[in-house]
Design a protein around this nucleic acid. Structure first.
Lengths: 237, 237
DNA sequence: CATAATGCTAAACGATCGTTCAACCTCCGC
DNA sequence: GCGGAGGTTGAACGATCGTTTAGCATTATG
């Protein structure tokens, strides 16, 4: 009896069944387009009962948000050893475990609710930990702004899910299909390994351009001034 | 008399004024949350006139979509010389020119309308041209799947705009503010230059893992088999 | 057994929405 | 000057929505 991420709708409390129906419909059509009557019908109850249990549609949404955020926070990873493929395996495990909720979570990140904010902050924090470890053990490159790097990497991580439709159209199959994930993995990893630019000409030029119009950065002596210049690029100029 | 991207609402046709009001409100609150009455009020007309000019709210949305897509397609770049900073300058010029429409365009990319599809395809196509040129002149690294790379880079380009709220929260200021753009530029460019991973250990391991479970890839002789292994990384294994 | 509480239904209310309609005004061609 | 066409208004219609309410079972409690 292993725990499924989506239990059969029959052995649930009526309250939980309404919540599951709401999450499904909110994920499919969004909050505004989903009516209380549609939720009630999917849950097999009357519209009045939805109000009886949750008070209002907005409160129902908040409860769904919090339920999913809590579920996501307390998820347990596959405890793969700290090998190289751990990160990817965890990421794939996450999207496999939360497959029915991907659309809901994506909408959360976009609709400006508190749950979406907490979710994104969680992603950024976890990414930050991963990057800190990677830099510590030498497997990752540092950045001139590690907070910003963490935010960007987290953003790039959720971007394929948030823009699932467009990316799926471009791929010819749904992003969460195994074939699509397989096809995406290598190019992304190549990008994260080799970078896009063959040399640092663009980086150097931009760095100089920014410094030229910098609003008083050189006046602060405490800050680090020369940015990180590791890696083996350097054909520019 | 330079052309502003947003003309004063007074010297416009009533039809155009309704369209401008719709774009503004759709961008702020989305299509579902914006009522015809609100559009009419913002345009200074009666709700009936909106229907008289556009037939229905859905038709009005389609016209707004097509108007913006057409405007975006026919935009002219700043014709910066083919130097290194051209790409960034064009990108910054775009978001500066379309600043009032960023939210609307972002919603288009997400709401599954035809206009959003055309917009994303346009981004991917332009990115593909940029990458083709970069690879041709040696300034960019090739990928094992150049189509996929183009899609990913395009996706990563619009991601900060689509997730404007979350990124803005993380930055402490709006993404389109000069300070935010300034702060984002270098870390992104570093990521695109040096990559995130310091060596190709993760890439090699994933490549092998994918090949082990590959559904009949080695049986096709026509395909290229060994992926690109340029760049100067290679400390792995 | 009586009673209160709980889970639940069906109907209705009030608000809002997209849309329609009849009428009015204005301007232009004849 | 006259008539018609198009721009415009404001009211009203019908549908849908979130929510409320009254009532009905069922169950637990004294």
């Amino acid at each position: 009896m292993n725990m499924r991420s989506v239990p059969s709708p029959d052995d649930l409390t009526t309250r939980a069944r309404i919540r599951e129906a709401s999450i499904a419909l909110f994920g499919e059509g969004g909050f505004a387009h989903t009516s209380v009557r549609a939720i009630a019908e999917r849950a097999g109850v009357s519209p009045g009962l939805v109000m009886h249990h949750f008070g209002s549609k907005a409160a129902l949404r908040i409860e769904c948000d919090e339920y999913l955020v809590e579920t996501f926070v307390s998820r347990k990873s596959d405890v793969a050893g700290p090998g190289a493929a751990q990160t990817i395996r965890e990421w794939l495990g996450d999207i496999d475990q939360f497959r029915p909720f991907v659309d809901y979570l994506s909408r959360m990140l976009l609709d400006g609710t508190e749950g979406g904010d907490r979710l994104f902050d969680l992603f950024v924090a976890e990414t930050r930990v991963m990057i800190d470890r990677g830099i510590a053990d030498g497997s990752m490159n540092d950045s001139s702004d590690r907070d910003m790097l963490s935010t960007i990497v987290a953003l790039y991580g959720v971007a394929p899910l948030v823009m699932r439709r467009q990316l799926g159209r471009s791929l010819g199959s749904d992003v969460l299909d195994a074939s699509a994930l397989r096809r995406m993995t290598l190019p992304i990893l190549e990008l994260y390994t080799n970078g896009l630019y063959a040399d640092d000409a663009m980086l150097v030029a931009t760095r100089e351009a920014l410094a030229a119009t910098d609003p008083g950065a050189r006046s602060r002596p405490g800050e680090y001034d020369d940015t990180v210049t590791d890696s083996t690029k350097g054909a520019g100029r």
